[in-house]
Computed example of a mutant assay.
Amino acid sequence: MTPPSFSEKKLLDNDAVAAWVFLAPALVILSIFVLFPIFYLLYLSFTGGSFTSTGTYWVGLKNYRRLFLSPDFWQVIGNTIYFTLATVMPSLIIPLGLAVLLNRSLLGRGLLRSAYFLPSIVSLVAAGLGFRWLFQTDGPVNSLLEALGLGTIPWLGSTLWAMPVLIILSIWKQLGFNMVVFLAGLQTIPPSRYEAAQLDGANNWQQFWYITLPGLQPTLIFAIVTTAIFTLRSFEQVYVITGGGPLNSTNLLVYYIYEEAFGLFDFGYAAAAATVLLGVTLILVYLQLRTWSD
C-alpha cells in the first residue's frame, strides 16, 4: 500500500477543516444547551444555599448523603418504580396487539390508526385536567359505578387509587406513539416468512411468536427505552391531577425535584436528586445502544 501523496494529505486536511467548520454551529449549540447544563447540574449538586444575596457554597457530598438517608426520597423512588413498571408493560403490550391487528387489511384501518394516535398529540396538561374531571368524587366514572351498583371510589383522595389514575393516563398518552413505532417495525418483516409459515401449518400464535416478535426485536428495544424515559420524566400528570398527594403517595421523582428546587429553593439538594435521575436515564440509553450493537 503506497503512502498518500502531499496533495492527497492536503485534501484530507482540507476535508477535516471543512468538516469541523460545518460541525461547529451544532457543537456550539450542543455545548450551550446540553453539555453546560449537565456539568452545571453536577456542580450544583455539591453546593448549598440559593441564588440570593447569600449565594451558593461548597458542601461536598452532603446533599447526596442527605438524599440517600431521606425516607421521603426512598418513598418517591418506590412510587417512581411502581409507576414505571405499571406503565411500561401495558404501554408495550396493548400497542403491539393493536399494531398487529391494524397491519392487516381491515375496514377503516386508516381511521382507526388516526384515532389511536390522537392521544399522542394531546397536551398532557389538557389530558390531566380531563382525567381529573373524570375521576373526581362526583365525576362521570363514579356516576357510572353507581349506575352499575358498585359504589363510588375516592380516586384522587385515596392512597390506593390515586396512582392508578396517573398510570391509566400515561398508558393512554403513550399508546398511539408506540403503536405507530410497532407498525413501522412490522413493515420491515418480509411477507414471505409468513407465507412459508402458513405452508408449514403454523397458526396465528406461532407466527406471532416465532416470526413477529424476533423481527420486532430492535423496535421493541427502542419502544421499551423511550417508554421508560417518558415515564421517568413524568411531571404534568402529578402537577395537574394530584400534586403528589394524598400523603405523598403519587409523588414521582421529577415532581419531587421540582418541589425541592422551586418550592423550598433547595437547589443543591434538588440537583443531587436530578443527578440520580440523569444517571438512571444514561444507563437506559447505554443498555439500548449496547443491545443494538450486539
Score class of each variant (00 low, 15 high):
residue 132 R to G: 15
residue 209 W to Q: 14
residue 248 N to M: 13
residue 164 P to C: 10
residue 223 A to T: 13
residue 254 V to P: 00
residue 218 P to M: 08
residue 180 V to E: 07
residue 172 W to M: 05
residue 166 L to K: 11
residue 233 R to P: 00
residue 243 G to D: 05
residue 228 A to H: 00
residue 189 I to N: 09
residue 234 S to L: 02
residue 197 A to L: 05
residue 181 V to Y: 05
residue 162 A to G: 10
residue 232 L to S: 03
residue 164 P to D: 09
residue 230 F to L: 12
residue 206 Q to D: 12
residue 198 Q to N: 11
residue 148 L to N: 09
residue 156 L to S: 06
residue 223 A to L: 04
residue 247 L to P: 00
residue 173 K to N: 12
residue 201 G to W: 11
residue 178 N to K: 09
residue 142 N to H: 13
residue 252 L to H: 07
residue 229 I to Y: 10
residue 139 G to Y: 09
residue 226 T to S: 14
residue 182 F to K: 06
residue 229 I to C: 08
residue 154 P to M: 03
residue 209 W to D: 13
residue 195 E to P: 00
residue 171 I to R: 06
residue 132 R to D: 10
residue 202 A to T: 08
residue 134 L to H: 01
residue 140 P to A: 15
residue 255 Y to D: 10
residue 176 G to Q: 09
residue 262 F to N: 01
residue 234 S to M: 14
residue 231 T to D: 04
residue 142 N to S: 12
residue 152 T to G: 12
residue 143 S to W: 14
residue 218 P to T: 07
residue 244 G to E: 04
residue 235 F to Y: 15
residue 229 I to L: 14
residue 203 N to I: 11
residue 174 Q to N: 14
residue 164 P to S: 08
residue 177 F to P: 01
residue 201 G to D: 11
residue 224 I to Q: 01
residue 174 Q to H: 09
residue 181 V to A: 12
residue 252 L to K: 09
residue 245 G to V: 08
residue 160 L to T: 13
residue 240 V to C: 10
residue 234 S to K: 01
residue 196 A to M: 06
residue 254 V to I: 14
residue 249 S to L: 07
